[in-house]
Write a protein that binds this DNA or RNA. Structure first.
Length: 555
RNA sequence: UGGGGCGUAGCCAAAGGGUAAGGCAGGAGACUUUGGAUCUCCCAUUUGGAGGUUCGAAUCCUCCCGCCCCAGCCA
């Protein structure tokens, strides 16, 4: 008997619905509004909806919730499709658009009018607000609330025909102006917007609101469980009000807490601002939490899906530690990313007891986690580069790497000892490290141990690369709490390194390929790469014991 | 001071009358030709608080406290 997988509260509710016979099947949907790029918060909803459908043998639709012509664009539709597919999900032929339902929705609205449950209101937006009352006081009924069905029908048709200006008239549901739930105080369900819609063009000048379009779109598609975020909890009575009166099927709305991650901002409004004000290079800037950005950064669909499963689903507001996301990436990349040696900040090393022009091929594993990945040959020569971080003239305690008089192993090759340092007489900068190698210490043939093994690259066999080091975009764990989140941007979120030296094979790496640069981190080939000048984005660093120690001793 | 929700470890999150899972982070150690990976161990005498019911309460009851959402013709 297997210990049963803990089910989240939504799965429990679904199983109750199935057991009670309320539903005999499960059908979910992911309904983004195409007014921005999908981000990792959407990924939570995507994974939830698709995995629940799969778990219960049901289906999940992809639906564009496009009822506002002012903010929506085809570009965002294309991006959403690309991103959901990239995440690994398949909606079959069920890509739908709320805008495809405009005709049906219009008919539903007329039906509501005929039932005496909706009316055309002439109040201005400001007046509607005043009539709505406040949190503690009931609203007042509009003087136009009791128009006849015939008049409402006629006015609504004239609205549709463009006979009125924006803001002049709206269609409202006739519910209860005294309801303690503001959403029930005669919500607007149709408004006049004389803008052309990216899909329906100028065919309509009246558009349904979310509150009206969403439940009915769900009902049209035969959705059983309509999962949405907590802020719609207050809308559920309204959702049900429309479904009960007009719905061809009866979906159930269930709300869960939206995702928040430390050092990130996950609201489309804020992300749009980052893009529009140029704080990032675009929606796919590798620092962005968008799926496009994470993809460019080097995140894999598997890592993101796993993360979404690990964070769970509940109704408690949460702020997930970004380290969990990073953990999921490392876990995935560790077992699949080919290893390569790359020197980010080159420091020249000359092995004095090796002849000029000496070349020896040493063999390195492509991935110690995956024997199938095979091995590769790397040239070992007299002049090498190592990383500046791997040498210290005056090493503090616990620094195990190279220092005057000290030995380290060059990964896959020999043990070298630092004999002397050559400095620039003017600046005092270290120019070259002179070492001697131990000919009997060749990797694989010697058991001699050193405190550390460092990576290296042959000067004459390396190629140049640009490396972009990313850190968290914000310096505050919760940028939402900043007065203005822009003020909390991390000024060091991007550091560009030029003149990095990498293995020659990396010249042919394809855009999107991810490698582990030995001892440094995981790096993804950026589309900005040019022939002979690859550009790498650091997806995430490797865990680093020394970095931790260094931070402590500097405190 | 209207309505709707939510409080279990630093962060997520199970358990829903039978004596607090798991993951991340953190700590200690083993191993290691990546200070990576892997492995082992530690990390809530207690579930926002106070009462009550019960042999037994994170779970049931009462009161209190705190946090989030709602007054768009956004979604």
């Amino acid at each position: 008997m297997q210990p049963k997988e803990p089910k989240n509260f939504i799965e429990k509710l679904i199983e109750e619905d199935l057991a009670s016979g309320r539903y005999t099947r499960v059908h979910t949907r992911f309904p983004p509004e195409p007014n921005g790029y999908l981000h990792i918060g959407h990924a939570k909803a995507i994974v939830l909806n698709f995995s629940i459908a799969e778990k219960y043998g049901g289906l999940c639709n992809l639906r564009m919730d496009d009822t506002n012509p002012l903010t929506e664009k085809q570009e965002y539709v294309d991006a959403a499709i690309r991103d959901v597919r990239w995440l690994g999900y398949d909606w079959g032929d069920r890509l739908y658009y709320a805008s495809d339902y405009f005709e049906k929705l219009y008919e539903f609205a007329k039906e509501l009018i005929k039932k005496g449950l909706a009316y055309v209101d002439d109040l201005s937006p400001e007046e509607i607000r005043q009539y709505r009352g406040t949190l503690t006081e009931p609203g007042r009924e509009s003087p136009y609330r009791n128009r006849s069905v015939e008049e409402n029908l006629e006015l609504f048709e004239r609205m549709k025909n463009g006979e009125f200006e924006e803001g002049q008239k709206v269609l409202r549901a006739k519910i209860d102006m005294a309801s303690p739930n503001l959403n029930m105080r005669d919500p607007v369900i149709y408004r006049i917007i004389k803008a052309s819609h990216y899909r329906t063009g100028d065919r309509w000048c009246i558009y349904p609101t979310y509150d009206f379009a969403h439940p009915l779109s769900d009902a049209i598609e035969g959705i059983t469980h309509s999962l949405c975020t907590l802020e719609f909890e207050d809308h559920r009575p309204l959702y049900e009000w429309f479904i009960e009166r007009l719905g061809p099927t009866k979906p159930r709305q269930i709300e869960f807490a939206r995702l928040n991650i430390t050092y990130m901002v996950l609201s489309k409004r804020k992300l749009t601002r980052l893009v529009e004000e140029g704080h990032v290079s675009g929606w796919d800037d590798p620092r962005m939490p968008t799926l496009a950005g994470l993809r460019r950064r080097g995140y894999t669909p598997e890592a993101i899906r796993n993360f979404c499963q690990m964070i769970g689903v509940s109704k408690a507001q949460s702020l997930v530690d970004i380290e969990l996301l990073e953990h999921c990436l490392r876990e995935d990349l560790n077992r699949r990313a080919p290893r390569r040696m790359a020197v980010l900040r080159p420091l020249r090393v000359v092995i004095d007891n090796l002849p000029e022009g000496y070349i020896e091929e040493v063999e390195l594993e492509n991935n110690p986690e995956d024997p199938e990945a095979g091995k590769r040959k790397v040239p070992f020569t007299r002049e090498l580069y190592i990383d500046r971080d791997d040498f210290m003239e005056e090493p503090p305690p616990k620094f195990y790497r190279l220092a005057p008089g000290r030995e380290v192993r060059l990964k896959g090759a020999y043990i070298v000892r630092c004999e002397r340092i050559e400095k620039d007489p003017q600046t005092g900068e270290i120019k070259t490290i002179h070492c001697r190698y131990d000919p009997d210490s060749r990797s694989g043939t010697s058991t001699r141990k050193t405190k550390a093994t460092i990576h290296w690259i042959s000067v004459s066999h390396s190629i140049e690369a640009e490396v972009r080091l990313y850190e968290r975009l914000f310096r505050e764990p919760n940028p939402e709490e900043c007065e203005d989140f822009i003020e909390c941007l991390n000024p060091n979120s991007l550091e560009v390194l030029r003149g990095c030296r990498v293995e020659p094979s990396l010249a042919d790496a394809g855009v999107g390929d991810v490698f582990q640069f030995l001892r440094v981190g995981y790096f993804c080939v950026d589309p900005d790469s040019k022939r002979g000048m690859p550009v790498f984005n650091r997806a995430v660093t490797l865990k680093d014991e020394w970095a931790k120690i260094r931070q402590k001793i500097r405190l």
